[in-house]
Design a protein around this nucleic acid. Structure first.
Length: 656
DNA sequence: GCGACAAGCTTG
DNA sequence: GTACGAGCTTGTCGCT
């Protein structure tokens, strides 16, 4: 490894203020511990050798800040910089670090969950109330990035807050180049561990400085009190997600590798068919440019659908539309389907694993503007569902009758142990129930009180008929309600004219007048309230475009407000339930017998020791359904389980 | 060779 | 004028 470091790099940066110190020996470390021990809060940040805490990445240094006698100080302790510089031993400092982090005082961090993972890896737990300034930033304004330096500029008005980060970035690019690595690869492998201590130390000190100042700023703006319900849920959820990510999801790697080669063979066969048997000119099917060229020039298809940038679209919808024109089109569809699965859902999942075949996703509490969770590395929230048509073609029966999808991805998501079933609880039609609550529409409320099939009821109300075809249309409308549906989309989805669509929707809003009023009243309220509103949990959302003079922008803002209100409430419900379940696990003594493993918007997944299964199931169902605030609408969860894998989950019935 | 963007696909 | 919210992948294009 090659290193280069010239102190002159700092010449153009702001001076290293007197309240910041790089801790270079054990005496200084003890003085720091003594100072921070008496601070009413402790702000911390870890610098690491990468972000993959579940693999090689570990702490190379820690920064702290706190106050004593009105003095605000920041410290950086270097432990494992691979620069040859003298530094402190982590194990020798561990008891001092524990003294600071395991006490009951307030802990503050920006992106708390990451640092908590890093400390847990070192055997240090973090106690006391948590305050994550990144989450507070998102509550303060969900429409701009919550990155630390970005908020130091925007919210604290520190104009040069980005300078040290820029200096670090320049250094990292230099180091990557010296080591002949791409910057992304370098950052993954080494993180900040090769940064000279002076540079990393001043950078890290400013990070805890900004973080503490953001804490003061958001508290001056009453974030944790004005939004106490969502704020407290988020702070509790942070620890639950930490557990969930640490537990990880076991993967059947052999299955995925087999599936990948099976899909590659299918792709080769399709290519052979197209370019050899059918004598079609060879082209790259994955290139939309080349595919468009083929459809237009070789097959002379009259393409009309356009992309956002006014190109002719060649998506799966177009291929399906023209499939009767030429037999090549269905083959191309099949190739694209196999290609998608092979590239996105087989070995790319395996690449995210640790040494024990577990994937540890990153659940993002600030990943969405509507306050749902997002998930990445890998994203477990968009794993393909098994396909009925493929199941019938392969096994002769559909999925409901235990047919098998030969290209199933979910089959790879296996249980941890045969005596530890995985349980899935999902809220039944939660968004429509929430709409029924907000609108108090009498027809909808009554349908839920009666336990009716809501799509059939809509079908009957709008079309005067609840046969299969009409129920399907009703379902399109019902789902569309959560998105602020347009008549154009309904027309396209139902394959009817825009006039017919408008007529049906008018009929719908006539029958469900409460829903119509709810939408209009919500828009009017937001308009008169400067684009700001909150949902039943007190979650804020700002949509300034609701007052735009541009009809397109305003209509979009109206759709967004409906969607945020409904989806956001459902998301909040699931998050609050995750916290409630965690608290119940603690109070019922189920620690170690139950593990959270995943959550997908309106669903939670736990691994549960079979011995405590009935008890745990009863607890979960009770706490998930116990939301009095939605009265009279009943909140219902469905339970499923598997003893093998995700693909084979089945309805769960327990004796009363 | 890299970053940014567009398109397309997968979920709830 | 063909919905709401996400994440991931490939191809393309312009820049260094």
């Amino acid at each position: 490894m090659v290193f280069q470091y010239t102190p002159t790099e700092f010449l153009n940066l702001p001076p290293f203020q007197g309240n910041k110190e790089i801790v270079r020996n054990y005496d200084s470390f003890e003085r720091m511990v003594h100072f921070l021990e008496l601070s009413p809060f402790i702000t911390f940040d870890t610098e690491t050798s990468g972000t993959a805490w579940y693999r090689h990445a570990s702490i190379c240094g820690v920064s702290f800040s706190g106050i004593l006698d009105n003095a605000f100080k920041c410290f950086y302790i270097p432990f494992r910089h691979k620069t040859g510089e003298t530094q402190l031993s982590f194990s020798r400092c561990a008891s001092g670090l524990k003294k600071l982090l395991e006490n009951d005082r307030l802990k503050i961090a920006h992106n708390f969950k990451f640092d908590e993972h890093m400390f847990r890896k070192e055997g240090i737990s973090i106690n006391g109330p948590r305050y994550d300034t990144m989450i507070a930033a998102h509550i303060y304004n969900e429409n701009v990035s919550a990155a630390l330096k970005n908020r130091a500029v925007l919210d604290l008005n520190i104009k040069d807050a980005q300078l040290y980060e820029q200096a670090v970035d320049i250094k990292l690019k230099e180091l990557a180049k010296l080591n002949n690595m791409k910057i992304t690869e370098y950052k993954y492998q080494f993180g900040y561990s090769h940064l000279p201590i002076d540079l990393c130390g001043i950078y890290a000190c400013y990070d805890v400085d900004f973080t503490t100042q953001l804490y003061w700023f958001y508290e001056r703006n009453h974030i944790s009190t004005d939004y106490s319900r969502v704020f407290n849920t988020e702070m509790d959820l942070l620890g639950v997600l930490c557990d969930m990510e640490e537990n990880g999801m076991p993967i059947d790697t052999d299955y995925l590798f087999d599936l990948k080669s099976k899909l590659q063979i299918v792709k080769s066969q399709v290519e052979e068919n197209l370019f050899h048997n059918m004598r079609i000119r060879n082209f790259n099917i994955a290139s939309d440019d080349e595919l468009r060229n083929f459809l237009l020039n070789d097959l002379s298809l009259p393409l009309t659908k356009q992309t956002k940038k006014f190109q002719l679209s060649v998506d799966s919808d177009v291929l399906k539309t023209f499939s009767s024109y030429h037999s090549a089109l269905s083959l191309i569809s099949k190739w694209k389907e196999a290609d998608k699965l092979a590239n996105t859902y087989t070995d790319s999942i395996v690449r995210c694993m640790d040494s024990k075949n577990l994937v540890h996703c990153d659940f993002q509490q600030i990943g969405t503007i509507a306050s749902r969770l997002s998930c990445r590395n890998p994203n477990l929230q968009n794993q393909p569902t098994d396909d009925d048509d493929r199941a019938i073609e392969y096994s002769g029966v559909d999925l409901e009758h235990n047919g098998i999808d030969p290209w199933s991805i979910r089959r790879a998501y296996i249980v941890r142990d045969k005596s530890w079933p995985r349980i899935y609880w999902d809220y039944s039609q939660i968004e429509l129930r929430i709409l029924a609550y907000y609108s108090q529409d009498p027809v909808m409320v009554q349908a839920y009180l009666n336990g009716e099939d809501i799509h059939s009821r809509t079908s009957l109300e709008v079309f005067g008929n609840k046969d299969k075809a009409f129920r399907r249309l009703a379902k399109v409308i019902n789902f569309g309600l959560s998105y602020g549906m347009t008549e154009y989309h309904f027309a396209a989805a139902a394959n009817i004219t825009v006039e017919e669509a408008r007529e049906f929707l008018n009929k719908f809003f006539e029958r469900y007048h409460g829903v119509k009023l709810f939408r209009e009243n919500l828009w009017e309220y937001i308009r008169n309230n400067g684009g700001y509103f909150t949902n039943i949990f007190g979650r804020p959302r700002r949509i300034p475009n609701i007052n735009s003079y541009n009809i397109k922008d305003r209509s979009r803002a109206e759709r967004q407000s409906i969607a945020t209100h409904i989806q956001g409430s459902a998301g909040e419900l699931t998050k609050e339930s995750l916290v409630r379940i965690h608290k119940a696990i603690m109070s019922e003594g189920l620690q170690g017998l139950v593990f959270p493993v995943c959550t997908i918007h309106d669903e939670v997944q736990y691994d549960c020791c079979v011995d405590v299964l009935p008890k745990f199931c009863k607890i979960v169902k009770t706490v998930m359904e116990d939301y009095e605030e939605f009265k009279p609408i009943p909140i219902i969860v469905d339970s499923e389980y598997t003893l093998t894998n995700w693909s084979e989950k089945r309805g769960l019935k327990l004796a009363a």
